[in-house]
């Protein structure tokens, strides 16, 4: 067994060293893969706040991932086409600045999470799972049939958005941006988990009655956590749009929601670095098994099943033992 903080440091170091090694060996594609891991991990860190800390099984986080992506896509495509976003009552131009995309993505996904959370949190259990799915499906179908931004065809951005002082088209510099945001989100998530708010949130999951007895309403705490969770996943969506230089309704599909859950669980639910380990393992498997066989999802399915049945703490649980608090 390894102590969890040590393991976390190792995971972070691996995620940093792989692209640096790739840079040295001139294997830019490895850097792209590592960037994808960082972005998926970021999406997972977001979900983990709702799922791991709050016990809210959201089957609709693709909605926030996709909205973040479309925030970048729409703003960038308006800027690239020299076509203002709106002219009435005042003119708003598109932009290719990541520093503008991110707040917009955070705001948009935060508002969506507020609306979806406010309604969904009236339910619990399987009803919560399904109502979050229902809202994500609504946005998915809307995106498919809304012609202005490409509908099913999606929206190409052609050029990656800009960040002051960096050349984002260089894979390693773009990786640095994704990695920095992931590290920030991890730090933030760790702060939340230890704060009074985080303790109350975990209290709401473990023993709602006791929390009520202390005079704290679980609904508002959960809602705030759900909004934060959605915003972080939305930020990951914005980065994912820039990674691919493309957004499409596929980002909003229920399979994407399923994949984000898989990252979290594969790594270990409620573990700070669970999503990082999970996303890393997922990409590793997808890439290696995918190269071996067309049917890579068959062994992957069995592996996933084995994790659920026999390794309940996920990868982190396997290496660092059961979580200390229950």
């Amino acid at each position: 067994m390894i102590r969890e903080p040590v393991l976390n440091a190792l995971i972070l170091a691996a995620l940093l060293l792989v692209p640096l090694g790739a840079l040295a060996m001139d294997e830019p594609f490895l850097i792209t893969l590592a960037t994808k891991v960082a972005i998926f991990a970021l999406a997972g860190v977001g979900l983990n706040i709702a799922l791991g800390l709050g016990g809210m099984v959201s089957f609709g986080h693709a909605a926030f991932f996709g909205l973040g992506g479309y925030a970048t896509g729409v703003l960038a495509s308006h800027a690239l086409n020299y076509d203002p976003l709106m002219t009435e009552p005042f003119q708003i131009e598109g932009t290719t600045q990541m520093l503008v995309h991110w707040p917009v993505a955070l705001l948009l996904s935060g508002l969506a999470a507020l609306a979806i959370g406010a309604l969904s949190l009236r339910t619990s259990g399987i009803f919560f799972i399904m109502i979050t799915l229902a809202f994500a499906q609504m946005i998915f179908y809307f995106a498919i049939s809304w012609p202005a931004y490409g509908g099913e065809d999606g929206l190409s951005i052609y050029v990656r958005s800009e960040f002051p002082g960096l050349n984002t088209l260089d894979p390693i510099q773009f990786f640095a941006i994704a990695f920095a945001l992931l590290a920030l989100a991890l730090g933030f998530s760790s702060l939340i988990a230890r704060s009074r708010f985080g303790l109350a949130l975990q209290g709401a999951r473990q023993n709602e009655a006791r929390l009520r007895a202390t005079g704290i309403g679980p609904y508002r705490i959960r809602l705030v956590a759900f909004v934060i969770s959605g915003m972080i996943t939305g930020l990951a969506g914005a980065l994912f749009a820039d990674l691919n230089r493309f957004v499409s309704p596929a980002m909003l599909s229920w399979q994407t929601s399923g994949e984000i859950i898989v990252f979290v669980i594969l790594g270990g639910v409620g573990r700070l670095f669970g999503p990082v380990a999970g996303a890393g393992l997922y990409i590793l498997l997808e890439h290696n098994l995918g190269g071996l066989t067309e049917y890579w999802k068959l062994p992957f399915g069995f592996l996933l099943l084995a994790v659920v049945l026999f390794a309940r703490g996920g990868l982190i649980g396997l290496l660092a033992g059961e979580k200390r608090d229950g």
Binding site: V57, G258, Y295, K297, G301, L304, L305, V308
Partner: peptide, 27 residues
Amino acid sequence: RLYRRDHLDQVLATFALILIFSEAITF
């Protein structure tokens, strides 16, 4: 083995079964 587990484990395990069934039938 999953009846007494929480919903999350059930969702994930049966999601894995979807992958297995689909690929097995394709194959």
